[in-house]
Amino acid sequence: MSDLEPIAPTDALELYLTDRSSDLSDWTIRSHRSRLSTFIEWCRDSEGLENLNDLTGRTIHRYKIWRRDEGDINTVTLKTQIDTVRVFVKWLETIEGCPPDTAAKIKSPSLSPEENIRDTELHTDAAEEMLDHLTKYEYASLRHVTLSLLWHTLMRRGAARAIDLQDYDRDEQYIHIVHRPETETPLKNGQGGERMVALPNTMCDLLSDWIDDQRPDVTDDYGRSPLLATTQGRVHVTTIQQYVYMATRPCAYGVACPHDQDPDTCAAAVERYDASKCPSSVSPHAIRRGSITHWLRKDVPQPAISDRADVSATVLDAHYDERSEQEKMEQRRAFLDDI
């Protein structure tokens, strides 16, 4: 204990956020601040802890129990909260702010198989209303192109960001998705994720209008010409994520708020970086999941969807297919009745 340097909880939090700001996105930093502020306040108010040198695994266990019983949160959220605390404590050890191996004593809540698979998806009706609104009011804008590309191609946001102008073939109507890690646009599955993705006519018309009329004439830091570009260069993955949160709020595409909030005063409606706080907004992954489920419901063969989305059949079944067992049964019945 004598080797430790005294540090107040609030000071530790600010040092941590400053240190991590170089390797975490702004969005992640804000999330960590929110989660850890609750922990810091609890340490001060409930434990009277003024110096994190006195932090122990038992202290954090008491916090976990308090958060579970008093926070009105589910197990998935609790796990996220505790995992963030563990990352913070592990960092704290590196600056001699708490006893060594404290982080190793933190037990993250276990999730059941059902809890480990998030069931959030952007439903077809909401997706179509959102895209119709963008077509009418933001046609061929970067946000319109980005949201349309994610929905129609089933690709991950990292893959969408990686596309160059040369990867889009207007005549043959497809996009070639290429793994280029040496210039900072890797694909999740490496070269195994490379593929050609066919595009519908409407998507090609939109891309062509974006390229011809709206896209800034820029290159990235490697001299490549990104398809999804801002005036600063290649669009960032956090920008794509922010576009999705903003566009999927019901009030953003003309639907009455299902949460009885006034769009003129609701923070999630008026503040760009609070869009994710809307209970109805979704992440890019939810668009991918919703689109995959949409095409499964349209009886598109699973192998075709797996190849297009770059996801194995096993993972698709476990993490992306949101059809109920009854829906699957009725689709099989309709298929067999036609034979």
Rank of each mutant, 00 (worst) to 15 (best):
308 R>P: 03
335 F>Y: 07
283 S>G: 09
180 R>I: 13
114 E>G: 01
128 E>I: 12
87 V>K: 14
164 D>C: 13
53 N>T: 12
175 I>D: 10
117 I>N: 02
137 Y>W: 05
49 L>K: 09
61 H>N: 09
78 L>H: 01
263 P>I: 02
145 V>P: 08
138 E>G: 10
42 W>M: 09
103 A>E: 03
91 W>G: 08
102 T>A: 05
98 C>A: 03
233 G>L: 08
81 Q>L: 00
208 S>W: 03
239 T>S: 12
301 P>A: 11
86 R>I: 05
45 D>I: 07
6 P>T: 07
60 I>E: 01
125 D>V: 14
297 R>P: 06
183 T>Y: 02
81 Q>Y: 06
29 I>T: 07
83 D>T: 10
150 L>V: 05
14 E>G: 02
21 S>W: 01
74 N>P: 02
208 S>T: 13
251 C>Y: 00
212 D>F: 01
63 Y>H: 10
152 H>M: 10
334 A>L: 12
118 R>V: 09
259 H>V: 06
263 P>E: 03
168 Y>T: 02
116 N>R: 13
79 K>T: 07
267 A>K: 09
71 G>F: 03
266 C>D: 05
283 S>D: 06
189 N>P: 03
256 A>R: 08
264 D>N: 12
263 P>L: 11
147 L>R: 04
161 R>T: 13
98 C>P: 01
20 R>W: 08
245 Y>R: 10
298 K>F: 09
19 D>Q: 06
120 T>N: 06
70 E>T: 08
277 K>D: 15
158 G>L: 00
119 D>C: 08
180 R>S: 15
310 D>W: 01
75 T>F: 01
233 G>E: 09
174 Y>A: 07
112 S>G: 11
287 I>H: 03
129 E>I: 07
322 E>N: 06
269 A>Y: 04
298 K>M: 14
44 R>Y: 04
167 D>N: 13
84 T>F: 00
